[in-house]
Design a protein around this nucleic acid. Sequence first.
DNA 1: TTAAAATTTGAAAATAATTCAATAAGAGTT
DNA 2: AACTCTTATTGAATTATTTTCAAATTTTAA
Lengths: 150, 150
Amino acid sequence: MKNLRPELIALLKKGSCTPRLSKLAAKTHSKATTIHYNIKQLESQGVIKTYKAVFDYKKVDAGFCTFVLVNLDKKEYKSPEDIGSMLAEYPEIESIDIITGEWEMLLKVRTKDISQYYEFSKKVLSLRGIERTQSLNSLFQIKTEFVKMQ
Amino acid sequence: MKNLRPELIALLKKGSCTPRLSKLAAKTHSKATTIHYNIKQLESQGVIKTYKAVFDYKKVDAGFCTFVLVNLDKKEYKSPEDIGSMLAEYPEIESIDIITGEWEMLLKVRTKDISQYYEFSKKVLSLRGIERTQSLNSLFQIKTEFVKMQ
DNA sequence: TTAAAATTTGAAAATAATTCAATAAGAGTT
DNA sequence: AACTCTTATTGAATTATTTTCAAATTTTAA
C-alpha cells in the first residue's frame, strides 16, 4: 500500500478541483444551470486558470516561507522571463515576479524548515544568471492566496 | 438580470470549489472511494484549508500587482497580528506576512491599475499603526499561487 | 419596434460523490 | 509465525450533482 498523501497534495496544489455549482447557485440565488453557463464562459475566456486547494502549509512540510529578492546578471540571460520559467519548475517556489526597483525579481519560496531552505538555495539560487539575492523570512502568515490563515 | 460575474469571482477567489475525486482517482491509479477516504482525512486534520480558483488577474480587474514593505509604529498597536487581521479584510490584499529584517510586514496587493492602487494606498496604508511603506511593483508575473501563468 | 444575440431556465440524461459493510494491509505483541 | 488491533482500500447501492439541450426570457443594437 503506497502512501497517497504526497501525490494528492502535489496534484491539489496546482489543480484537480472543480467549482461547486450547487453551492454557488444557492449562494447567488440562481439555478445550477445558470452557474454552469457562466462558469463555462469564464473558463473558455481564460479568466479562470485552474481550481486548486490551499493548505495549512505547516502540515504539508512547507511551513518555512521565504521571500527572495534577486539581482539578475544581465550578461548571462536573454530575458528575465527565461530565468523565470526555469525557476517556475521548482515545486518549492510559490510565486515569481519581475519587479521594479533595486532588485529585478521577487520569489516566494516554501520549504519544510531552514535547513531545507539552505538545500534549496544551494541548488537554485546559484544558477547562472542569478547574481545576488537577499532573503526575507516570514515569521507569521496572516493571509495567503486571498485566504485567511488560522 | 444581474451580472453574476463579480459575485462568482469573489466566491471562487476564496472557496466554493471541491476536489475532483474521479480525476484524482484516475491520476493516482486508485479508486474514487479510496481518494474520498484520504481527502476527508486531510480535511478533518486541517491540512486542507479550502478549494479555490486561480484567475488570470488581468481579466478580473486585478492585473496591477504590488508588494508593499511596511514599517509598523510600535506605539500604536498591541501586536503585528492585530493590524494584520484588520488588513486581511481588504479584498485587494492577497497575502500578509510578518517578516524578518528592516521591515516588519510584507503585503501583496492586487488592484486594477495604478490609480486604483493609489486609492487603495490612501485608504489602507495610512491606517494607525502603519508608519512607513515602500512598494515594489510587479512588472510581470511568471508564477502565482504555485500556478504558472501564461 | 423589431431583429439578433446573449442569458436563464426546466426536464432528462449522464456522471460523480457518498455511505457503509466487507475485505485487506500494516503494526505491534507474544 | 500467529494473533490482535488499527488503519486503509474496495465494491455495491444510494444519493447528489453536473451536463446537455431545447424553450423561454432578457438584453442589445439598429
